[in-house]
Design a protein around this nucleic acid. Structure first.
Lengths: 348, 348
DNA sequence: TTGTACGCGTTATCAT
DNA sequence: ATGATAACGCGTACAA
């Protein structure tokens, strides 16, 4: 260190009393080594003698040094940040898949930048741009519908991209999910197989829910010859919407008896509650099938028949795929279908 | 631009086919201006002539340039990142308060780095360190219990800190929440006021829930002279746990009739369902009071009496406090108590 | 085992 | 209105 350096250091310290950030250089100075040695001590302690390692640790302890990951990211061109976009952070459907994703990635040293996109693809596009500016090392997207501009900037970023919660023939990169069309169709076959000949649906407005609903209706009609009544709404699914859905079907559409396929368990629960409030028996008068197999579905009274998707496995699979990518392993199957499973319970 | 610059550009392009990151310098070159001018055009367009602004926009469009926020953060010492720590990202109690927090912060140009801490303060400490290394401009913490090391590094970081979802006499910095002790006590007074003389509790193991429970029991006993039975568990609250809780109270503790205060609405709902499954009437035989006023509480059958906390307002207040801080406004009240409100419904 | 020199892609500070 | 130049704090050669 030159004399002028020392002086400038002293003056700058004197000038700015408020919380001067501790740097590796400062730690090194205190430990009597250079900045690089501190860097090495932190990234690979085996490359540093035990004696200097001890001094450096002391200096870190004394100064309360916290490495600056921003500078590290700029220098190494790796942010150790994964950006994840979900439709809603208050919807357990998505957060329960982000949770294991997060855990696996953190074990590998990554942090998750999580944002909610809402409904519109245009909003997603803006969020993708905002996230890309932080130079994430990979990105997780929910769903397969993205604007062309979004796809373009994603490809331009040159990072791994996982699309989850659906399947497609044309993924941007990696893909982990299941077929919503097949799910709806399977429920129709399940319901018809149980002998139901009248059916209705209660659905939220999101695109994947509608695909399940349509697949259900088409298949059910093909099997029974009967039209499927439907009650749709735009807002977020809730017990209230489920109750309103059944009321709508009964009061407005003249639905009398049969099975009702709901786009989520919470809606199904609402339908069950409304039925009971009206003195209708479940499943004798009205049978109910939900979607998602959330925690409560098995414990309502009666328990709700539903479609189980292993969201934890999905999140883990998405993370594993990324980790392999980072390790330079070529993935033989960039498209992973984790499937689904109908849980046959008392509500149907 | 010199001739050698051009050559080096050409060769570097030829050398590295895979996604050479577009820089401001590259955009400037294409637009015939310097890198600084591009920076200005982006941060404050009014400082650039309309003609060059047009050229720069063209160049950005043509190259697909995405600004590097990492470099920006390093240079400006502002990451425009807010780190938020919640006990669980799958628990709507917390995410519903993060949602408006997130929205307000994003409107002000900030992004949220969200992580879940789980139960242990030690885990929180590690997460805080990890987050601080990303140099967030502020941090949101859930709860008031932090390790001394955590408090130290937080203070050392010199950034605004908001602690939410509780109150304390000794905040690190800002604080937005309500008193869990007062909440429990109020429920006891409410229940005793309704004439209940026997009571029990069903509680999850988190520290704040236990504080509510204890305050309830103490006050109820003081008012009625009767001991309050309790059933506690460690796992996350669920319908299943609520059902098990009532079973436990009845089968193991001999609870016959009275009011049950649950640490969350989901538990209360479980208690209601188990009561109904046992042929008990709610509230005639067993009255139920929940906590949180989640969406479904008003729509179960019967609707659940509960304690409403305006989580959205809480998240917004926390964000507003930070925004004011960033604007240099001195906050007259660093401690904000948003209170709570008992929702008197059919279950009690 | 340790150090020197340089670059990462911006913003901030002066000039012009 | 625009440009040169110096930070920002760290990793990555390369050298010793």
């Amino acid at each position: 260190m030159s004399k002028t350096d020392m002086i400038s250091d002293i003056t700058s310290n004197a000038r700015k009393t408020p919380s001067r950030a501790v740097t590796m250089a400062a730690v090194g100075r205190m430990a009597g080594v250079s900045q690089v040695t501190v860097s090495r001590a932190l990234s690979d302690p085996s490359k540093v003698s035990s004696e200097t390692l001890r001094k450096i640790k002391e200096a870190i302890e004394a100064t309360g040094f916290v490495p600056n990951a921003i500078a590290g990211a700029l220098a190494s061109k790796r942010s150790m940040l994964i950006s994840a976009l979900v439709p809603s952070i208050t919807n357990i459907t998505y957060t329960s898949m982000i949770k294991p994703f997060n855990e696996v990635m953190r074990q590998n040293g990554y942090e998750i930048l999580l944002s909610e996109t809402g409904l519109a693809p245009d909003d997603e596009e803006k969020l993708i741009a905002a996230h890309l500016s932080r130079r994430p090392d990979a990105m997780l997207l929910t769903g397969m519908r993205h604007t062309v501009a979004a796809r373009r900037s994603l490809l331009g970023a040159g990072i791994p991209v996982v699309e989850v919660w659906d399947t497609t023939e044309t993924p941007i990169d990696l893909c982990v999910g299941f077929s919503h069309m097949e799910a709806g169709r399977s429920v129709a076959e399940f319901a018809a197989g149980k002998g139901y000949v009248r059916a209705a649906t209660v659905s939220a407005g999101d695109e994947r829910a509608l695909r399940r609903k349509n697949a259900f209706s088409d298949r059910f009609t093909a099997l029974t010859g009967n039209v499927v009544l439907e009650s749709n709404f735009e807002a977020q699914a809730s017990l209230a919407n489920g109750r309103a859905g059944l009321s709508d079907l009964i009061d407005q559409h003249g639905f009398g008896d049969g099975v009702i396929f709901c786009s989520s368990d919470i809606l199904a629960h609402g339908v069950v509650i409304e039925a009971q409030a009206r003195g209708l028996r479940v499943p004798e008068d009205i049978a109910v099938i939900g979607f998602g197999d959330q925690d409560f579905a098995a414990h309502t009274h009666p328990a709700i028949t539903t479609v189980r998707v292993d969201r934890e496995a999905l999140g883990r699979a998405a993370a594993d795929a990324l980790v392999q990518r980072f390790a330079g392993i070529d993935l033989t199957a960039p498209l992973i279908d984790i499937g689904f499973e109908i849980q046959d319970r008392a509500s149907s």
